[in-house]
Design a protein around this nucleic acid. Structure first.
Lengths: 148, 148
DNA sequence: GTATTATTGAGAAGTCGTATCAGAAGATAC
DNA sequence: GTATCTTCTGATACGACTTCTCAATAATAC
């Protein structure tokens, strides 16, 4: 599980011809920390967290940065059982999906996916040109099972 | 593909000990129409559409009705590629997932799903008690492919 | 250092959904 | 038909979340 580093993010900004400004670095650092801890977050969470270190950072900037990092492919949007959406650092470049705990909202990446032949069958039956998919699995993590 | 009928919806209200009131009938009729046309909608869409026929209907009622019909199992929440969530009439009672067109937002129900043994593997590896899942497939429908 | 341009921060505004509650509408008993 | 009771409704306030605007600021190229 290769974790995301600050350098990677800053490098991506530069590679895209964007500036690695102070607010962006601060947010990237926070996100890298969360990534290492395997924690997911909302844009609002990011804003609050960054404000502790850098109170001058604006909310709009936090939302913008999350959007950019998602476009870069560093972040992944995860849907919870209750319908809320949060973000999660992608640990590797591989194909994966999410298993989320309905109680504590912990997210685990899993490899379970639809079989390629099933995709082919769907494409054939529907005539669609398939471009992407998402799989979300819900359940209760061992800790929450033990707690109840 | 058995389409939803107004009688079915009204019957469900009565069976649940609820009243099939004027606003509920109006909304059910609209939803049945959309179901026949295989169109998806948001609660807001429903409210706007019903207002053309029955301007007195309140927004809260539209949201409540959609919620109830979802609980009844007549409606299904679908996630689009852009992250928005809308509702879709379920044509049959079987287990299914969604294939949505990124261009025209048309929704098709598909049977492609994760293999049961893959679920078992995930449960075993993670320790989670799995309770549910969603699969969303994105692509372009034949019509939109031809149009480009 | 200066000019140029991307980026930012603050807050207003918009969107979307929920909660509240008095009153209306529907069901039931007589 | 009328009285009574219960559910449902509509209007609106509210809250959470997100986007937009725009002057000020910071990063970069020269």
């Amino acid at each position: 599980m290769s974790t995301l580093t600050l350098d990677q993010v800053i490098g991506a900004f530069e590679a895209a011809g964007m500036r690695a400004t102070r607010p962006r670095r601060a947010m990237a650092a926070q996100i890298v920390t969360w990534g290492a801890a395997d924690q997911e977050f909302s844009s609002e969470d990011l804003w609050h967290a960054v404000q502790e270190q850098a109170p001058w950072v604006g909310r709009a900037t936090a939302y913008r940065t999350v959007q950019i990092l998602q476009d870069f492919g560093f972040l992944d949007r995860v849907t919870f059982a209750d319908g809320t959406e949060r973000y999660h650092v992608i640990s590797a470049g591989e194909h994966h999906h999410h298993l989320t705990c309905e109680t504590c909202h912990r997210v685990v990446e899993v490899e379970a996916c639809i079989a390629p032949e099933a995709f082919a069958a769907v494409a054939q039956a529907s005539g669609f040109a398939i471009s992407g998919h998402r799989v979300e699995i819900f359940g209760r993590c061992p800790t929450c099972q033990a707690a109840s």
